[in-house]
Computed example of a mutant assay.
Amino acid sequence: MTQLVPIKMITIIALDSLQNRLVADLKNCGIKGYTIVEVEGEGLYEQHFTDWEGRNIRIETLASDEKVLSIMKILSENYFEKYGVIAFVTNVEVFRKERFD
C-alpha cells in the first residue's frame, strides 16, 4: 500500500507581471511543476481596484526542504524588498513523493 510522505508546499503571492520571472527561478531551482491561479485580496498594500495596476497571482509548488530554502533565498534577495511579494511554507503529505522531489 502506498503511504503518505511529508513534503513542503511553498506558496508565493505576487503581481502577475512577475509570473515569468518567478517561474524561471522555480525551474532553475529544480522545480518540476507548479500551479498558478489569479487571486484577490487585501493586505498591507491594500486591494488593487483596476487591471492596469496588475492582478495578483498565487503560485504553489511542492518541494524538498533543500529546494524550499533555495527558493526562499532567491525571493529574499530579488523580490521581497522590491515588490509586494509574500511567500510561506506549509507542511503537507503526498503520495508519490518522487514526482515532486
Rank of each mutant, 00 (worst) to 15 (best):
40 E>M: 13
53 E>P: 13
42 E>D: 08
11 T>K: 06
27 K>Y: 03
47 Q>P: 09
13 I>D: 01
33 G>F: 03
39 V>F: 08
26 L>P: 00
5 V>T: 15
16 D>E: 06
46 E>P: 10
46 E>F: 13
28 N>L: 03
27 K>M: 12
13 I>V: 14
11 T>A: 09
53 E>R: 13
11 T>W: 01
15 L>I: 15
12 I>K: 00
30 G>D: 04
52 W>P: 15
52 W>R: 14
32 K>F: 04
36 I>M: 14
39 V>A: 12
9 M>L: 06
25 D>S: 14
7 I>N: 01
27 K>Q: 04
27 K>C: 08
45 Y>R: 12
35 T>F: 05
37 V>G: 09
38 E>W: 10
34 Y>H: 01
51 D>R: 10
28 N>E: 08
29 C>E: 13
8 K>A: 07
29 C>M: 13
25 D>W: 01
49 F>M: 09
23 V>P: 00
45 Y>M: 05
10 I>F: 01
16 D>L: 09
23 V>D: 00
11 T>D: 07
48 H>G: 11
47 Q>E: 13
19 Q>Y: 04
52 W>C: 10
6 P>L: 04
24 A>N: 12
10 I>C: 00
20 N>F: 13
24 A>V: 08
6 P>F: 11
26 L>N: 01
8 K>P: 03
31 I>H: 00
12 I>L: 01
40 E>L: 07
35 T>L: 02
40 E>W: 14
53 E>K: 14
40 E>P: 15
29 C>W: 12
39 V>W: 03
11 T>P: 02
29 C>Y: 05
41 G>I: 05
15 L>H: 12
28 N>K: 11
37 V>P: 13
15 L>A: 08
32 K>R: 02
13 I>W: 03
39 V>N: 01
37 V>W: 11
43 G>A: 06
9 M>N: 02
27 K>A: 11
32 K>T: 05
43 G>P: 05
51 D>M: 14
36 I>E: 03
30 G>R: 12
35 T>N: 11
33 G>Q: 12
20 N>M: 07
18 L>W: 02
17 S>W: 13
